[in-house]
Structures are given as structure tokens and as C-alpha cells.
Amino acid sequence: MAHAVTEGDKGYIQEISGANLLPFVYLGAKHMMTGYDHILFLFGVIFFLYRIKHIGIYVSLFALGHSTTMILGVYFNVGINSYLIDAIIGLSVVYKALDNIGAFQRWLGFQPNTKIATLVFGLFHGFGLSTKILEYEISPDGLVPNLLAFNVGVEIGQLLALAVILIGMSYWRRTPSFARNAYTANVAMMSAGFILVGMQLTGYFVS
């Protein structure tokens, strides 16, 4: 459901051919804004980032990762089972929540490189996008410009989602409840990630 392709969108894409930039920009933005697993991961990534410079670095790494695998995955018709790739995306949410509460330092004695992790999980998120784009059964006529337009839409959607998250976080951080509830919020995010993993693996085995 996190990457659901509506029947109306799918039917529209199947009917058109050639370069249709604006529709694909719209679809990309819609896909990111309604992809709650992407949004959860972004929420975790910026949870303890206060400086715009640092936020820009991590969001850029994530964008680089998912843009690369999304475009290459569709162009070379690399399809991955949507249940499995979405389960991995759910695990990325779990990972980020554990990272935020310092679990890896306590368990492993060191801190994994958060920038590399963000880039790697971005690659998996991109395969989640490409897998769903392949379901659109896009015409090869105008494929490259349409893919680029979809990616532009994804980035627009990501920026819009990020703006909403940052506005909410900026107000929350000013209150005493942030320090009290930051740990709980990340545990809740981790639980949501495990639920996503369970849902996707159940779908995989049932289907």
C-alpha cells in the first residue's frame, strides 16, 4: 500500500505514449507524498539534525541513491519483488530509529557511518520506486524524458514532505516535550517499521 499504483493512474499511463512531462512530474510528486515509508525514513533521518547544511547533505545522499536505482531499474527493466523490496524499506525505518536511540553504539561498540547508510538505503528506496513504475507498463516511446520528469516530481514531493516535517519538528523542538518524548517517538517509528516489514513479508508468503 505504501507504493500503491491507483487504477486511474495506471490506466492513464498505459494509454499515452511519447514524452508527457507534466503528468509524470505529478505522478512522481504524488508517489512520494503518499509513500509513508519514504516519509517515515526521512523523518528519522532529520530527527536530530538541526542545521540546514547537515539536512541538505543527508537528503541529497538519499535523493542520489533513490534517483540512481529508480532510473536505472526502469531503464534496464530490473524488477524486484515489490513485497521484498518494501520489506527492506521497512527495515530502513527500523535501522534509522535504532540509530537515533544509540542502539548500535551500545550493542556493537561503534557507530555505523550514517551517511553511507542513508545512501545505501536510498538505493533500496529507489528500487521500490522503479518496481512500481514498471507496473505502469510505460511505453518505451519517450521513456527517458518521462523517467526524468517522474524523478523531478519525486524530488518535488520529497521537498514538500520535508518542509512539512521540518515545520512540525521546529515547533516541537522548542517545547520541553521533545527531550522527554524523543526516545518514545523513535521507538514508535521502529515499531511502525517492524509492522511494515511484517505486512510485506506476509504479503510475499501469502501471494
Score class of each variant (00 low, 15 high):
Leu119Trp: 13
Val144Thr: 09
Ala117Pro: 02
Phe62Lys: 10
Ile138Cys: 04
Val94Phe: 08
His3Arg: 14
Asp9His: 14
Gly142Tyr: 12
Leu84Ile: 15
Tyr58Met: 14
Phe62His: 07
Asn151Pro: 07
Val206Ser: 12
Ala163Thr: 15
Trp107Ser: 03
Leu64Glu: 04
Ile46Tyr: 02
Ile55Pro: 05
Asp37Phe: 04
Gln200Phe: 06
Thr6Val: 05
Gly102Cys: 10
Leu160Trp: 07
Ile55Gly: 08
Phe47His: 06
Gly28Pro: 12
Leu160Cys: 12
Ser130Cys: 11
Ile165Arg: 01
Lys96Tyr: 01
Leu159Thr: 09
His54Met: 11
Met70Gln: 07
Leu166Phe: 14
Gly11Lys: 15
Gly193Asp: 01
Thr184Lys: 09
His66Arg: 05
Leu148Asn: 04
Ile39Trp: 02
Asn186Ser: 04
Ser139Asp: 15
Gly128Leu: 02
Ala97Tyr: 01
Leu159Ala: 15
Leu123Gln: 03
Ile101Gln: 01
Gly79Ala: 13
Val45Phe: 01
Phe43Gly: 00
Lys115Asp: 09
Ala103Thr: 07
Thr131Cys: 11
Val197His: 04
Arg180Gly: 02
Ile46Asp: 03
Ala97Lys: 02
Tyr171Phe: 15
Asn100Pro: 01
Val120Asp: 01
His66Glu: 07
Phe150Thr: 01
Val78Tyr: 09
Ile80Thr: 06
Arg180His: 05
Glu15Gly: 14
Leu119Arg: 10
Asn113Thr: 03
Asp37Lys: 03
His31Arg: 10
Gly73Ile: 07
Phe24Arg: 02
Asp86His: 13
Gly109Gln: 09
Phe205Ile: 12
Met190Asp: 01
Leu119Met: 10
Leu22Cys: 04
Ser207Ile: 01
Val45Lys: 00
Leu27Val: 07
Asp86Ala: 14
His38Asn: 02
Leu123Phe: 13
Phe194Gln: 06
Val25Ile: 15
Phe76Ser: 11
Thr175His: 11
Arg180Val: 05
Tyr204Ser: 01
Leu129Phe: 15
Thr69Tyr: 03
Leu147His: 07
His3Ser: 02
Val164Trp: 12
Ile39Pro: 00
His66Leu: 13
Val120His: 04
Thr175Met: 08
Ala185Asp: 00
Leu49Tyr: 05
Thr68Asp: 12
Phe205Gly: 01
Val45Ala: 00
Leu21Tyr: 12
Ala161Arg: 05
Gly153Phe: 09
Ile71Trp: 04
Leu162Ala: 10
Tyr83Met: 09
Val152Ser: 07
Tyr26Pro: 04
Val197Trp: 05
Val59Phe: 08
Phe124Leu: 14
Gly142Val: 11
Tyr204Ala: 11
Gly8Tyr: 02
Ala149Trp: 03
Val120Asn: 00
Ile16Lys: 15
His31Cys: 08
Glu15Gln: 12
Ile13Ala: 15
Ile55Ala: 07
Ile52Asn: 12
Gly79Pro: 00
Tyr36Ala: 04
Gly102Asn: 07
Ile80Met: 13
Tyr58Gln: 10
Lys30Val: 09
Lys115Ala: 14
Tyr58Asp: 06
